[in-house]
Amino acid sequence: MNRHSIIIADDHPLLLKGLNDFLLEREYNIVGSGTDGREAYNLITKLNPDIAILDIQMPYLSGLEIAKKCKANGIDTKIVLITLHKERELYEKAQELNIFGYVLKEFALEEIENCITTVSQGDAFFSPKIKELLSTNKEYDDSLSILTPSEKKILKLIANDKTNKEIASLLFISYRTVEKHRSNIITKLNLEPKTNSLLIWAKEHHDRLI
């Protein structure tokens, strides 16, 4: 039996029960569970567990807010966040708060045991899936960072199915200038000079264009 004391908190009853049952079957030492952030923080202060596995978004206090309070009050419970969120900002915030674990909900059951083992040894565990995802997103960010503001505007209009003629009219530039910009963007993004290569790329990364 894993003797490290663990509490779990999630505001989704089925997810909470599923994770709780899964860990109990494997003889982990679950000492408490909660359904909101306030209850989770109270369990941490009362029971001083070795590990707290928390949903990142809960009523009253989020997983990040609990981690912040623990850090401010010198509570040494190791925080593990389970989340649906894949945004870089949340991941970086988790690292700033010295959070020991960051696991995506869709992979929670397959990763949680490895996470607990790693965290129990004093090492941080961040889901390989989130690292892989953020690594890919960083490549997108780097690609976009080499584009000029004008090129980004054109790319966004391309993603919105605007023709070269419509883009020229909307940006008050000549058709030839739009063509030149398109050519430059294709070169910078290292795309094949096929008819729809830029349109496909723009649509795939539409949510990253501002």
Results as ranks from 00 to 15, higher is better:
residue 109 L to M: 02
residue 53 I to H: 08
residue 109 L to S: 04
residue 19 L to K: 09
residue 105 K to M: 03
residue 19 L to S: 13
residue 207 D to N: 15
residue 156 K to W: 10
residue 137 N to W: 10
residue 97 L to C: 11
residue 50 D to V: 11
residue 70 C to S: 09
residue 65 E to V: 01
residue 195 T to K: 15
residue 141 D to A: 07
residue 190 N to F: 08
residue 105 K to V: 02
residue 32 G to D: 07
residue 42 N to I: 00
residue 10 D to N: 13
residue 62 S to R: 06
residue 61 L to W: 07
residue 111 E to M: 02
residue 4 H to F: 15
residue 60 Y to N: 14
residue 35 T to V: 06
residue 34 G to C: 03
residue 138 K to F: 09
residue 168 A to P: 07
residue 149 P to C: 04
residue 117 T to F: 01
residue 176 R to S: 15
residue 96 E to N: 14
residue 133 L to K: 08
residue 153 K to G: 01
residue 92 E to V: 02
residue 115 C to V: 00
residue 94 A to R: 11
residue 70 C to D: 02
residue 37 G to H: 05
residue 33 S to V: 02
residue 187 T to F: 14
residue 106 E to I: 08
residue 113 E to L: 00
residue 142 D to V: 03
residue 50 D to Y: 13
residue 97 L to E: 10
residue 123 D to T: 01
residue 79 I to H: 07
residue 81 L to D: 00
residue 193 P to E: 05
residue 179 E to P: 01
residue 142 D to E: 11
residue 124 A to H: 09
residue 190 N to G: 15
residue 110 E to F: 04
residue 28 Y to W: 05
residue 58 M to Y: 04
residue 192 E to F: 09
residue 9 A to M: 08
residue 74 G to Q: 06
residue 182 R to S: 05
residue 129 K to Q: 13
residue 177 T to F: 11
residue 67 A to D: 07
residue 127 S to R: 01
residue 205 H to Y: 14
residue 61 L to F: 13
residue 130 I to H: 00
residue 187 T to Y: 15
residue 81 L to Q: 04
residue 187 T to C: 11
residue 85 H to W: 02
residue 55 D to F: 10
residue 43 L to W: 02
residue 144 L to G: 09
residue 51 I to T: 05
residue 160 N to P: 13
residue 79 I to Q: 11
residue 43 L to P: 10
residue 157 L to T: 03
residue 106 E to D: 13
residue 165 K to W: 04
residue 175 Y to V: 04
residue 207 D to W: 01
residue 111 E to A: 06
residue 66 I to Q: 04
residue 182 R to V: 12
residue 197 S to L: 07
residue 21 D to Q: 12
residue 183 S to N: 12
residue 114 N to C: 00
residue 163 T to F: 13
residue 53 I to E: 07
residue 40 A to I: 05
residue 133 L to T: 14
residue 180 K to C: 10
residue 203 K to C: 06
residue 96 E to C: 12
residue 188 K to S: 11
residue 158 I to V: 13
residue 199 L to T: 14
residue 42 N to W: 04
residue 69 K to N: 10
residue 10 D to Y: 01
residue 128 P to R: 03
residue 23 L to H: 01
residue 35 T to D: 08
residue 79 I to T: 08
residue 201 W to K: 09
residue 113 E to W: 00
residue 64 L to E: 00
residue 90 L to Y: 15
